[in-house]
Computed example of a mutant assay.
Amino acid sequence: MRYPQGGGLTDERRSLREELRWEAAERFSQGDENTVIAHDLRVSIRSVQRWRKAWSQGGPRALASKGPGSLPLLSDELFAVLERELAKGPAAHGWPDKTWTLSRIRTLIGRRFHKSYTAQGVAALLKRHGWSCQVPARRAIERDESLVDGWAKETWLQVEGPWRRSMPGSSSRTRPASR
């Protein structure tokens, strides 16, 4: 089962699903049909079929939650090592500038720990440990507003030309002027 927001079930939702499976197990022992159980519990028929198969092979204990679908690849100890590596900066790891990107951190994790993460997985890992996305300022400190304004008024108009609402041959929703 996939979850579009990038994660699995929370502990609360996992226990709720487990309660549904226990209730389904009671209904299995009563001989109820899969479609009736699915309708009453508001789950898919396929889920009920999987639960019935597990219940018939292993009894009610087979319907117990097995915990989260996946565990973090980096333990807290390994993440502390990663933080020390990140503190050294990208230049220490062979990148030419001073910007950490998710792709670079992913590469660093692969090189240092031999673990494979996706960029989204790296973002989730960092967020889980209290890191946040830092976006640089959009304007350079060296920016001179008077030069930018002059360029926009003079040079850009020469390059682009004046913009007209309608020109001969242009499409328009209005009726052409009569001649």
Rank of each mutant, 00 (worst) to 15 (best):
Y3Q: 14
R104V: 06
R138G: 12
R14F: 11
M1D: 10
E18F: 01
R165T: 13
A24H: 05
M1I: 06
Y3C: 13
I37D: 09
R46Y: 12
A123V: 01
T174W: 14
E77R: 14
P136Y: 06
Y117D: 09
S44Y: 01
W131S: 05
H129M: 07
S47I: 00
V81F: 13
L78A: 15
R106S: 03
I141R: 08
P90R: 14
S44H: 07
P176L: 13
W22S: 03
V48A: 02
R138Y: 10
I37W: 08
R61F: 14
I37T: 13
S47A: 14
S166T: 09
L108E: 07
R50M: 05
A80G: 08
P90E: 10
V48E: 04
S103H: 06
I105F: 01
S65H: 12
E77V: 14
A152E: 01
R21H: 06
S75T: 14
E154L: 02
E154K: 10
Q57H: 11
E145I: 05
G94T: 04
K88N: 05
K88L: 11
R42C: 03
F28M: 05
R27L: 11
D76E: 11
L126Q: 03
S47M: 13
S178D: 07
R165M: 11
P60A: 15
S75R: 08
A62Q: 02
L74S: 06
H114S: 08
R165F: 08
D149V: 01
H93G: 00
R104P: 02
G31N: 03
L86I: 07
R50Y: 13
R50Q: 08
S166L: 04
E12P: 00
A87Y: 01
W51D: 02
T101D: 01
R61G: 12
L125A: 12
A25R: 06
E142L: 01
R165W: 10
R27A: 10
F113E: 12
S47F: 05
E23P: 00
A80C: 08
G7K: 06
R21G: 07
E160L: 13
T174N: 10
S170Y: 11
Q49T: 12
P168N: 09
R50F: 11
L73R: 15
W156C: 15
R138W: 08
E19Q: 04
S15W: 02
Q49G: 12
T10P: 13
A87H: 09
Q5W: 10
E12K: 09
M1P: 00
I105Q: 04
E26L: 14
V135L: 06
A91R: 13
S172N: 04
A64D: 07
K127T: 07
R17H: 15
S116K: 15
E160Y: 13
G130H: 08
H114E: 03
H129T: 03
L16Y: 11
R164H: 13
W151G: 00
Q49P: 03
H129D: 09
C133E: 13
D40G: 01
F113W: 09
R50T: 10
R27Y: 08
W95D: 05
Q57M: 10
W163I: 11
S56V: 04
V122L: 00
L20P: 06
R165E: 12
G150E: 14
P176Q: 09
D76F: 00
P176E: 12
V81E: 15
E142C: 02
R14M: 10
H39D: 07
E160N: 07
E142H: 15
Q134S: 06
H129S: 07
Q134E: 05
L73T: 12
A92G: 06
T155H: 00
R17G: 15
